[in-house]
């Protein structure tokens, strides 16, 4: 069961998503040629804490604003938003510990994102997709642990 978040925490979530979107447009976190989908990892992790669809929608829109690369509509950003919303819907339904659910959701979201946004890339460069998935999971797990410590406190962290 999610706890209602304070406005300060919601504000921090917006800053986190905006920073993730900005960094994702750079090669700052490029490791061995792979860039993490930082915004997706952060959004999926936050989906386990945000209670209202309205706030989550605003977070997704913030991420999309920072990820848009050209004018007009981009399939990638549209798929990104849909995948983020799917995770928000899915995270309530998954059984088991939220920490494990978060890992599974990030991995699944990465695969679904490329499968829908660029199937040719998914088929031709599956290894890169898997590497990115692992990278996303590492970052998403860190964000989840951090958010869990803030929201529930260290003793009640939802692992």
């Amino acid at each position: 069961m999610k706890e209602k978040l304070s406005w300060q925490m919601i504000g921090a979530a917006f800053i986190l998503v905006a920073a993730a979107g900005l960094i994702q447009n750079t090669d700052t976190l490029n490791a061995f040629g792979i860039k993490p989908n930082l915004a997706l990892a952060v959004l999926v992790a936050l989906a386990f804490f945000i209670t209202t669809l309205f706030v989550y929608s605003a977070l997704v829109l913030t991420a999309v604003a920072f990820l848009r690369f050209e004018g007009g509509f981009e399939l990638s950003t549209l798929v990104f938003a849909i995948v983020a919303f799917l995770v928000f819907w899915l995270c309530e339904k998954l059984p088991g510990k939220n920490f494990i659910n978060n890992i599974l959701s990030i991995g699944l979201a990465t695969l679904v994102f490329y499968l829908a946004a660029d199937p040719a890339f998914f088929i031709n460069d599956t290894i890169s997709v898997i590497k990115e998935g692992v990278y996303n999971i590492i970052i998403g797990s860190a964000v989840f642990a951090l958010a869990s410590a803030f929201v529930y406190g260290k003793k009640r962290a939802q692992f």
Partner: peptide, 29 residues
């Protein structure tokens, strides 16, 4: 939301912000 997504003005602003944000993070990394 549709107007926001179709408009390209923000893209240039975002690119500029990303570039400067990366420069800001560079010394720390």
């Amino acid at each position: 939301v549709l107007v926001f997504l179709a408009d390209q003005t923000l893209v240039a602003v975002k690119s500029y912000s990303s570039h400067n944000f990366a420069l800001l993070l560079e010394p720390a990394f």
